[in-house]
Amino acid sequence: MSTTGLENSSVIVTGAGSGIGRATALRFAGEGARVVIADLNAASAEEVADAVRSAGGTAATVVGDIADQRVVDQVVTTAVESFGGIDVLVNNAGIMGKMSATADVTDADWERVIRVDLTAPFLLTRAALPHMLERGKGAIVNTASAAGLRGSASGTAYTVVKHGLIGLTRSTAVMYRDKGIRTNAVAPGGIRTDMVVDMDPAALAPSVVVSYKANSGRMGEADEAAAAIVFLASNAASNINGVVLPVDNGWSAV
């Protein structure tokens, strides 16, 4: 039996089809949770759902762009109708964009990164909160980034939205701490995933960022970030609220 308080809990994980999201969904499944797997890729979502069931969990899938309000509504409805409510929300889905420096960021790239990496977590948090308030408890964990702790870990758009996501985390934590709802974030450094960065290696930002990443240490594994996410969602973190936890092998301490 789970000692984390997550057994039979209703959990939403966005971007759960691969990388940190996949590892997180499987860790929740190992605790006996019921997981809504939200991802843009249908085949990936179904593969993870099968893996969750094999690990002893229960899974439901929602396929679509989490930056779309209709998909957000579908994710929340699925959790409530399939699993009776929402105990945990993990806003993990994200893109890096073209990793451009400020003068090189296009309107389209700026707006897309903000929509997926910041607006989508806000929309899903706003939609999930009434269900958590109804229960008088809940845990929200946002996947921020080392880029949200410094100005040198990625391109401008990604860096800006991860700073914004940390602001969303802290504001929500303060606003709802007396309502039984905790909101925290993890800030991964370099993690070995299949996230694709569509960038021009000859552009300014990559050449600048590479020099700073020399201090980043070894690449982390997706499951290491997932372990921190599940911890923050669990009863073991019952008095932890508004924290941004680096998962970066000490990069943020350099």
Results as ranks from 00 to 15, higher is better:
residue 1 M to V: 07
residue 6 L to A: 06
residue 9 S to T: 15
residue 9 S to I: 01
residue 10 S to A: 15
residue 10 S to C: 03
residue 13 V to E: 01
residue 15 G to T: 08
residue 17 G to Q: 11
residue 17 G to F: 03
residue 18 S to V: 02
residue 20 I to W: 05
residue 27 R to F: 07
residue 28 F to L: 02
residue 29 A to Y: 04
residue 37 I to T: 09
residue 38 A to F: 10
residue 41 N to Y: 08
residue 41 N to F: 07
residue 47 E to H: 03
residue 48 V to W: 04
residue 49 A to T: 05
residue 51 A to Q: 13
residue 58 T to Q: 10
residue 58 T to V: 12
residue 59 A to P: 01
residue 63 V to S: 04
residue 63 V to Q: 02
residue 64 G to S: 11
residue 65 D to R: 11
residue 66 I to N: 12
residue 66 I to G: 12
residue 70 R to G: 13
residue 73 D to P: 01
residue 74 Q to M: 07
residue 75 V to C: 10
residue 79 A to V: 06
residue 81 E to Y: 00
residue 87 D to E: 08
residue 89 L to I: 06
residue 89 L to C: 05
residue 89 L to K: 12
residue 91 N to F: 05
residue 92 N to W: 03
residue 93 A to K: 07
residue 98 K to E: 14
residue 99 M to C: 05
residue 103 A to S: 11
residue 103 A to I: 10
residue 104 D to S: 15
residue 108 A to T: 12
residue 109 D to V: 08
residue 110 W to E: 06
residue 114 I to L: 13
residue 114 I to S: 02
residue 117 D to I: 03
residue 118 L to E: 09
residue 123 L to A: 08
residue 124 L to T: 06
residue 125 T to S: 15
residue 128 A to H: 00
residue 128 A to P: 00
residue 129 L to P: 00
residue 130 P to V: 00
residue 130 P to Q: 01
residue 130 P to W: 00
residue 130 P to S: 01
residue 134 E to K: 15
residue 136 G to E: 05
residue 136 G to S: 11
residue 137 K to V: 02
residue 138 G to F: 04
residue 139 A to C: 13
residue 141 V to W: 13
residue 142 N to I: 14
residue 142 N to S: 15
residue 142 N to D: 14
residue 145 S to C: 09
residue 147 A to G: 08
residue 148 G to I: 09
residue 148 G to K: 10
residue 151 G to H: 10
residue 154 S to P: 09
residue 154 S to E: 05
residue 156 T to L: 08
residue 156 T to D: 03
residue 162 K to T: 08
residue 165 L to N: 02
residue 167 G to C: 13
residue 168 L to S: 12
residue 168 L to H: 11
residue 170 R to A: 13
residue 170 R to I: 14
residue 171 S to D: 14
residue 176 Y to E: 01
residue 177 R to K: 11
residue 186 V to C: 09
residue 186 V to W: 07
residue 190 G to Y: 05
residue 190 G to E: 13
residue 191 I to G: 11
residue 192 R to I: 06
residue 193 T to H: 07
residue 195 M to H: 06
residue 195 M to P: 00
residue 195 M to G: 02
residue 198 D to E: 14
residue 204 L to I: 14
residue 206 P to W: 03
residue 207 S to C: 00
residue 211 S to C: 01
residue 212 Y to R: 12
residue 212 Y to N: 15
residue 216 S to Q: 12
residue 216 S to F: 15
residue 217 G to E: 08
residue 219 M to N: 05
residue 225 A to D: 06
residue 225 A to W: 02
residue 226 A to K: 06
residue 226 A to S: 02
residue 227 A to E: 14
residue 227 A to K: 12
residue 227 A to H: 09
residue 228 A to N: 01
residue 229 I to Y: 02
residue 230 V to E: 02
residue 231 F to S: 03
residue 233 A to Q: 08
residue 235 N to Y: 00
residue 240 I to T: 15
residue 244 V to F: 06
residue 250 G to C: 08
residue 250 G to P: 04
residue 252 S to H: 15
residue 252 S to A: 15
